[in-house]
Simulated assay, not measured.
Amino acid sequence: MQTIILLVLSNIFMTFAWYGHLKYKEVSLWKVILVSWGIAFFEYCLQVPANRYGHGVFSATQLKIIQEVITLVVFVGFSIFYLKEEFRWNYLVGFVFLVLAVFFIFKKF
């Protein structure tokens, strides 16, 4: 659970570092880059330990799949609540396919 919590927190920082500036297009690009790097530092401070602690419990492939699913879940919330973008039905269909991908990655055949 520690790995998942760290991944969620790191993704919140990552999402703000990568996309938070979209609401502030009047700010100079160089300023946005510096602020994004500062935010990304905290993302790395959570992401690296998450992968370090999680490897062994999960394979590297499983960690990456978990990371991608968390990234998409965090991003959907971010885009709806922060950027005020709408969530479309085809996004939901895509997420269902991603959940199926997670199933197949974790299933022992």
Rank of each mutant, 00 (worst) to 15 (best):
T3G: 06
I4M: 06
I4C: 06
L6V: 02
L6N: 04
L6E: 08
L6I: 01
L9E: 05
S10G: 11
N11Y: 07
I12H: 02
I12F: 05
M14K: 09
M14Y: 15
M14N: 15
T15C: 12
T15W: 04
T15K: 09
F16Q: 02
A17C: 08
A17E: 01
W18N: 10
W18V: 08
Y19V: 02
L22P: 02
W30Y: 14
V32L: 10
V32Q: 09
I33D: 01
L34Q: 04
V35C: 14
I39L: 05
A40W: 08
A40H: 10
F41M: 14
F41W: 12
F42W: 08
F42L: 09
E43S: 13
E43L: 01
E43T: 13
Q47H: 15
V48W: 06
V48D: 02
A50Q: 02
R52A: 09
G54R: 05
H55R: 14
G56E: 00
V57R: 10
F58V: 07
A60K: 10
T61A: 14
L63E: 12
I66E: 03
E68I: 15
I70L: 07
T71V: 04
T71Q: 14
L72D: 13
V73N: 00
G77F: 14
G77S: 08
S79V: 06
I80Y: 14
F81E: 07
Y82K: 04
K84V: 00
K84E: 13
E86R: 11
R88G: 06
R88M: 10
Y91F: 14
Y91D: 14
L92E: 06
V93Y: 07
V93L: 15
G94H: 00
F95P: 03
V96N: 03
L98R: 12
L98I: 15
A101T: 11
V102S: 06
F104K: 04
K108C: 03
F109T: 12
